[in-house]
């Protein structure tokens, strides 16, 4: 660790001179305050959340805002703005339209892929500048703790036995990640659910506690408190490996004790991107500022605690790896949604 830091520090002076030259060339006519250092925001940064208040993306954005403020990681302030209209299209279009604006970043959900595919609204991740993958959000198969189902297999068998459309699956939004997973389960097992869309993940978890639906595929953070209170039961995680967290969470179970769905005969594997993008046309210097900023965020103990509480997959990619990952994921969504019949009618 310390070695790594040393080399980074050594490299800095040379890079600095290059940056000064660059900044001088670019900054004609602007009132750059600190010319001596790398690019930094000169006014407050708008952090766009393409989803409503209280959801997973919103919680994470506000948490990041808090961590940055608490640890003084940035001189300017950060403002979280929710632009949830049209399944997030409002937010993405806003960032797409803010060409070369370095004071705007956006956090993604899967709606980065699903919204343009399902509605035909014209935007694509290639219209934005990729910055950084922060984490991947897991999905877990939940049932109410009062039901007798202990494993995913038992539950799926019960769904099949009840007959098509008898059991209700609650989820967030229509033709988005929750419904994609539901359709994938149906294709895999032959069970048939009635999918009921709600507006937010927290609401979905509460509907399951109130037994208005029979199961959900909530993200861990959306349902963890209800699990701890003994209201919900996790059946399996939609990933190819178990989660790494071994601290006990509820009823003597840890996140790591939850089996994978594949091991239960439901081989569905799906994670959701929590990543950062910027508007098109920003400079490398500006992207680097945010990459460094999020590196510092991810090193804080607060962040590590947050990751564990929400049982996130902490894979964090930048640069080309990130672009490749997003490209692959886009193709996968295209295929999944075409199969489910969710693509917008042309």
């Amino acid at each position: 660790m310390s070695k790594h830091l040393n080399t980074a520090a050594n490299r800095q002076p040379q890079a600095k001179w290059k940056r000064v030259a660059l900044a001088c060339a670019v900054a004609v006519g602007t009132f750059a305050s600190g010319v001596a250092s790398a690019w930094e925001p000169t006014k407050s940064v708008e952090f766009v959340v393409p989803a409503g208040t209280g959801g997973g993306a919103d919680q994470m954005a506000r948490f990041i805002q808090g961590v940055i403020t608490k640890n003084n990681l940035m001189k300017q302030s950060m403002v979280v703005v929710n632009k949830s209209g049209g399944a997030g299209a409002e937010g993405f279009l806003d960032v797409k339209g803010s060409n070369k604006d370095p004071h705007k970043i956006i956090i993604t959900l899967s709606n980065l892929f699903t919204t343009p595919l399902a509605t035909g609204v014209p935007f694509n991740w290639k219209d934005l500048t990729p910055v950084q993958m922060l984490a991947l959000d897991q999905f877990i198969f939940w049932v109410n703790a009062d039901t007798p189902y202990k494993t995913a297999k038992e539950y799926v068998d019960a769904v099949k036995a009840a007959g098509p459309n008898k059991m209700k699956m609650g989820g967030t939004g229509s033709k988005q990640e929750d419904q994609i997973i539901t359709v994938a389960i149906e294709k895999q097992t032959g069970a048939k659910f009635t999918y009921i869309p709600y507006k937010g993940g927290g609401e979905v978890a509460v509907q399951l506690v109130g037994k208005h639906v029979d199961s959900t595929v909530n993200n861990p953070i959306e349902a963890v408190e209800q699990w701890r209170a003994g209201k919900l039961r996790p059946l399996c995680v939609f990933d190819d490996k178990k989660m790494p967290y071994t601290a006990k969470v509820a009823s003597n179970m840890s996140w790591g004790d939850i089996p994978t769905c594949a091991s239960q005969g439901v081989s569905v594997d799906y994670q959701m991107l929590r990543g950062i993008f910027m508007p098109p046309g920003v400079t490398k210097e500006q992207v680097k500022f945010y990459v460094d900023l999020f590196k510092k965020v991810r090193e804080t103990p607060d962040w590590k605690e947050f990751m564990e509480k929400g049982a996130f997959d902490t894979t964090a990619l930048t640069g080309e790896d990130y672009v490749n990952w997003v490209t692959r994921e886009e193709q996968r969504h295209q295929a999944l949604m075409a199969e489910a019949g969710f693509l917008a009618k042309k």
């Binding site: 949830s84 209209g85 399944a87 299209a89 014209p122 229509s174 033709k175 869309p197 709600y198 507006k199």
Partner: peptide, 19 residues
């Protein structure tokens, strides 16, 4: 956007009306 079907309604292709 219609929550239940995920379809756009009455927007007539104007992105301003999405929200």
């Amino acid at each position: 956007l219609d929550t239940v079907t995920g379809q756009l309604r009455l927007t007539f292709g104007f992105t301003e009306l999405l929200k």
